[in-house]
Computed example of a mutant assay.
Amino acid sequence: MGFTLPCYKKWSVDLRLVRASRLLRAFAWLLWCAATTALGPLAHAQGAPAVAHMEVERSLEGLFLNVSMEFGLPSLVQEALQQGIPMTFVADAEVTRSRWYWSDEKVSSVQRFLRLSYQPLTQRWRLNVSSAPFSTSGLGVSVGQSYDQLSDVLAAMQRIAHWNIADAQVLDTGSPYRVHFHFQLDMSQLPRPLQIGALGRSGWNLSIARTERVPLLSTP
């Protein structure tokens, strides 16, 4: 009596075709984005990115920064995230001392790195924060949290509270200081096809900057 076995070979071929089709669609999307940004920037509906509030706290322990920003993600950035491409953002804080006889002296410089990604299977957003750059092999030492809505994760990204930007030992009591804050999308972390078309294009750019004077340390 004859019988037939399931066609495992055919299923294997079909699975490879599905995977190849997905890779081709993702690659085609990357090329389309690169070509689109090369032709011209896409404006997004959000207002101009800006620092809504910036406060520098000075104490016997050092300098601490509180920042509240207002920004939305450019449309191409959102599309890339939906395609599973993570985005890296960098916050820089530089402390300088004013000198009347020469250029300002840099006394401290710190960075904070944020990796934003979208997980299609769970339909959730993931934000990892680290004081060191993310390695190519993984997230390294970082703190991560998941969010259900994009608005929730953006709210977390837009606020920095009590960030230690300079220790007390590098500061003089009576010297005038300034804090230069900068927040931007790190386009060097984008896939190579996107870097070619995205660099310098407003459809990808997200950059915010502000400078504040540091209050003098009050003496008892």
Rank of each mutant, 00 (worst) to 15 (best):
F64C: 01
A43E: 08
G72K: 00
L39D: 03
A50D: 07
V90S: 07
F71H: 02
S59T: 15
A80S: 12
A20F: 10
L60A: 15
L24Q: 04
N66F: 09
L24M: 09
S21M: 12
W29M: 07
A80Q: 05
Q83R: 15
A26M: 08
A52M: 13
A45T: 05
E61G: 06
Q82K: 14
V51A: 14
V56W: 03
W32N: 07
A48M: 11
F89P: 11
L24T: 04
T88W: 01
L31Y: 11
A91Q: 12
R58A: 00
V77N: 08
A26D: 09
C33I: 13
M54K: 03
G84I: 08
A34M: 13
E70C: 14
S59K: 00
I85C: 06
H53L: 14
E70Y: 03
F71C: 11
A38R: 12
L63W: 01
F64V: 01
A20M: 11
V51W: 00
Q82R: 15
V56E: 02
S68K: 12
V67L: 15
L24N: 03
L81R: 04
P41L: 12
V90W: 07
A26W: 04
V77Y: 04
L30G: 01
P74E: 04
L23K: 12
G72M: 04
A91F: 15
A35K: 03
P86E: 12
A91W: 03
Q82H: 15
A28M: 12
A20K: 15
Q82D: 15
L81Q: 06
T37E: 15
V77K: 00
F71T: 04
L23W: 04
A20Q: 13
A34W: 02
P41W: 05
R22L: 13
P86Q: 09
A48K: 10
L23I: 05
P49N: 05
R22F: 11
A26L: 14
M87W: 03
C33G: 12
S75H: 13
A43F: 03
W29C: 08
N66H: 13
P41C: 12
L31T: 04
A20I: 07
R25Q: 10
L63P: 02
G40F: 11
L60F: 07
V51D: 05
N66C: 07
M69L: 09
L39W: 09
V77S: 12
L31P: 02
